[in-house]
Computed example of a mutant assay.
Amino acid sequence: MYAEPGIIRKIIEGTGDTWAVVGLSANEHRAAYRVAEVLQRHGKRIVPVHPKAETVHGEQGYATLADIPFPVDVVDVFVRSELAGPVADEAVAIGAKAVWFQLGVIDEAVYDRTRDAGLLMVMDRCPAIEIPRLR
């Protein structure tokens, strides 16, 4: 289990509504596309972050977290585990409140480093699965 008790609820209900979704493109067949749609249905503003900087679900995309010109509350990470550390570090640098590593994205050292930096952190979980559990 890669979330302390209560952290999932705190991130979903208490950190704010702007979620940068790293790895989100306009490819409807990717999990990030579907999860972002669920987040929107539950009142979250999604911000696509992908090298292509595509508009997805009506929201302007950005190539990197640093390119986003407004505050981000949660960084939801859909990249391979070996690429997730720099994304978490960038989340810390932009002042995000939380980082969420999706199912299969696991790096315990990054988990600890991100928590030590003061951010809430969840790893190897999916908000599209967790949100209905909270209702």
Rank of each mutant, 00 (worst) to 15 (best):
A117P: 12
I46V: 15
L103W: 11
A98N: 09
L119D: 06
A88F: 08
K97P: 12
G23W: 07
R45D: 07
I8K: 14
R34D: 13
A20V: 06
P127Q: 03
R113V: 02
D124I: 00
D107A: 05
A20Y: 09
R115E: 11
N27K: 15
R45C: 01
Q102E: 14
K97D: 12
H57I: 06
T114C: 06
A93N: 14
M123E: 04
I46S: 02
D67V: 00
D67P: 03
C126A: 02
R41P: 00
A128R: 08
V49E: 00
V122Q: 01
V92K: 12
V110T: 15
V87P: 10
D76M: 00
A98Q: 04
R80E: 04
H42Y: 15
D112Y: 03
L24C: 03
R133T: 09
L134A: 02
L24Q: 01
G16M: 08
G85I: 00
V38N: 06
E13K: 11
A32P: 02
I94L: 11
I94E: 13
H29K: 15
I131H: 08
R113S: 13
K52C: 00
R34K: 15
P127K: 04
E59G: 02
V22K: 01
P127T: 05
A88Q: 14
A31K: 07
P51I: 00
L134E: 10
E130D: 15
V56C: 05
T15I: 00
E54H: 01
I106W: 03
I68N: 06
V21I: 15
R133Y: 07
H29A: 14
R133N: 13
I46F: 10
Y111H: 14
W19E: 01
V79R: 15
R115W: 00
L39F: 07
V35R: 09
A63Q: 13
R34G: 10
M123F: 01
V105D: 02
A31M: 11
Q102A: 05
Q40V: 13
D17G: 04
H29T: 11
G95P: 12
W100P: 09
P132F: 01
K52D: 13
S25I: 03
D112N: 11
M123D: 00
T55H: 08
